[in-house]
Design a protein around this nucleic acid. Sequence first.
DNA 1: ATCCAGGTTCGGG
DNA 2: CCCGAACATGGA
Length: 301
Amino acid sequence: MVKVSGDDPIYLSVPANFDFDQCLRFLDRNPHEILHRVENGRWIKLIELAKTPVIIQVSKVSEHLCVKALNTELDQEQRITLVSFLEEVFDLNSDLTAFYQKMRGDPIMGDLCEEYQGLRLLGIPDLFEALCWCIIGQQINLNFAYKLKQRLVQATGDKLHYMGRDYFMFPRAEVVANMSVKEFSHWQFSAAKASYLIGVAEQIQAGALTKSGLLGKSVGHIEQTLMGLKGIGTWSAQYVMMKCLRIGAAFPVHDVGLQNAIKVITDSPKKPSLAQLHQLNRKWHPWQAYATFYLWHSLIK
DNA sequence: ATCCAGGTTCGGG
DNA sequence: CCCGAACATGGA
């Protein structure tokens, strides 16, 4: 074992079927994204490791991901936590072979899988953030959703100023739990969105809702628990299962992005019917979440 | 102006 | 159980 110092980069070997640039393309799809940025083929983000704010920078160097902490040195524990964080975000431990096998020749997914081969389902490991992002994005266009998130995060998230730039983290649940609907209103959040966010924050803060608690349950139970939250319906429950809990068979059938992508790819004059979508749900099992993500990717301009 | 956005809740048949 | 309306706002 070679002794390494705390500021040496971490090198992660990437799995087969991994395309960092495709991942970056998704991560960089909106200019108002406040929780990370993509620059010169690098992914840069502020995260907390053992109570310390750390700016991480991830790039691809031959067959490895090169991970650096920009503002501090990391101890062994922090490095381990960081690696599992990246494994979660980039879904490094999934083998996509079966996915590509299943989709080969599929009229909707066949070409997409070739074009985007190696794209990973980019995750949102934090349950609170995933739930909030659902609520923020409901029934409004994505660009506006990113703006709303930006205002919330800039006003309430933990911040680090480093080398002339500001880096933000998603607000802690206890901060959001103690906010009022009125505060949200001057960031143009509807009263409904604001109260849903506060309610979810209260549940998380109280410890009544945890990621590990959910992961120990059956898929049906998880779905029911999530939908029991005010503001979380079928779409949001599936979204959280996809992006946070990494349940492969999650499938937000009502998602307009999903439906529009299918409409475009099949060159159809109208969106697919619910019956068609349920058929795809069965056909693509247990890779519905990945299929959905690839379809979303196809919508990036 | 009108319609659609990565929906959800609520009240009524 | 299913259906329409209301919710707020921005962009095409």
